[in-house]
Design a protein around this nucleic acid. Structure first.
Lengths: 191, 191
DNA sequence: GTCTATAAGATGATAGAC
DNA sequence: GTCTATCATCTTATAGAC
C-alpha cells in the first residue's frame, strides 16, 4: 500500500508511533529515548526525524493514538443496555488492565501525570484521554437522571485513577480489583 | 553549630535536600538536574558529590525527608478526639494543598508514580510516604470497629490520590475540594 | 573540608550522501 | 524519499587544587 508521501512511509510512521506508545508507557516519556523507539520500530536512529520534526511531535502522535484508543473503547461500551451497566463496564476495563497497571501504571493516567509540569500545550494534550472518559461518564450519570452528573463522574473516575496509582506503587493488582468492586456497588446504590 | 563531619557541612546538606525536594516535585525527578539543585541551594555544582555519592543518593534523601514530613503530619492529627475526626482531618490536608496539587501534583503521590518503573529499590522507597498514610488510615478505621479496615483505607486514599491526579491534569483545585467533601460525607455515613 | 576544572557518556537534532 | 555520519549540548561524575 502506498500513500501520497511515498512508498511505505505510512507503515513506518505507524510502527514508530506504536513502538513509542509502548516505550513511553513502560519507561516514562522523559526516560524513553528516540534511539530506543527507533530500535523497537526497526527504523534507523537518525531517521526518526524524517517522520517527526522533534521528540515532542512524536509524543503528540502517541497522545493522539491513545485518545483514539479511548474513543474506541467508549464506543464499544455504548452497546450495553443501561447507563449503570455502561459505567460498570467502563471501570471494569481497569480490572482487565490490572497487571499492566501494577507494573507500569494506567496508560492514560500516567501520561497526564508525567506531562503535567509543562505549559507548552503538551500538558493539555496529555489530559485529553482522561477528559474524554470523564465527559462520557458524565453523560451516563445524566442519563441516570442525576443533576450532579459531573461531580459523580469525577468521583467515580478519581476512585479508579487513585486505585491505579496505589496498585502501581505497591505492585498489587488486587487493589484496583477490590476498589472497582467497591465502586460497582456504589453505582448500584444510586439507582 | 558543628558536627562530626566538619564545620557547616550539615547546614549545606540540609539546604541541598530542601532545594532538591522542591525541585524534584516541581520539575519531576528525572527532569531536575543537579546543577539546578546546586544553584537553588547556593552550593557549587560539582560539590554536590561531596554530600551525595550519586543523584540517586540525593533522591533517597528527599524521599526520607518526605516520609518524615508524613509522620509529622500524622502525629499532629492524633490530637483529634475521634477516629472519624482524624480521618476527615487527614483528607482535609489535600484541600489545603489544592493549589500546589493543581500545579505540580500531590508531593507524595507523584513521587511514587515517577519512580515506579525502577526496580533497584528506589521504587519501594518512594512508596513509603503513601504506605505510612495508608497504614495510619487503616488503624483509624480499625478503631471505628471496622473489620474491613484495610479495604476502607485504600478506598479513602485512592479517592484522594485520584482526585489529586485529576486536579493536576485539569489544573482545577475545585476537583480535590469537592471530592474530599464527598469522602467526608462517606466517613460520616460509616458511623 | 571545600571547591574548580574537566572528563566521559548520552541525547536530541542536523547536514548531506545515496 | 531514505538513511548514515556527525554535531552541539547537556548531565552525571571524578580528579585534584586550595
Amino acid at each position: 500500500m502506498t500513500d501520497s508521501t511515498g512508498r511505505g512511509s505510512r507503515g513506518k510512521r505507524e510502527r514508530l508511533v506504536a513502538a513509542a506508545g509502548d516505550l513511553l508507557h513502560r519507561q516514562g516519556v522523559l526516560a524513553a529515548t528516540l534511539a530506543q523507539v527507533a530500535e523497537a520500530a526497526g527504523v534507523p536512529v537518525g531517521n526518526v526525524y524524517y517522520y517527526f520534526k522533534t521528540k515532542d511531535d512524536l509524543v503528540r502522535a502517541v497522545i493522539d493514538a491513545r485518545t483514539g484508543q479511548v474513543h474506541e473503547m467508549l464506543g464499544a461500551l455504548q452497546a450495553r443496555r443501561s447507563p449503570a451497566a455502561r459505567l460498570k463496564a467502563l471501570i471494569h476495563q481497569w480490572v482487565e488492565m490490572r497487571d499492566l497497571i501494577a507494573r507500569y501504571g494506567c496508560p492514560f493516567g500516567t501520561l497526564a501525570s508525567e506531562l503535567d509540569r509543562r505549559d507548552d500545550g503538551l500538558d493539555r494534550e496529555a489530559a485529553k484521554p482522561i477528559a474524554a472518559i470523564l465527559d462520557w461518564a458524565e453523560e451516563q450519570f445524566r442519563e441516570l437522571g442525576r443533576r450532579d452528573a459531573r461531580d459523580l463522574a469525577v468521583h467515580l473516575f478519581a476512585g479508579v485513577q487513585g486505585a491505579a496509582l496505589l496498585t502501581n506503587a505497591f505492585r498489587d493488582p488486587d487493589i484496583v480489583t477490590s476498589q472497582v468492586r467497591h465502586l460497582e456497588r456504589w453505582i448500584d446504590s444510586l439507582s
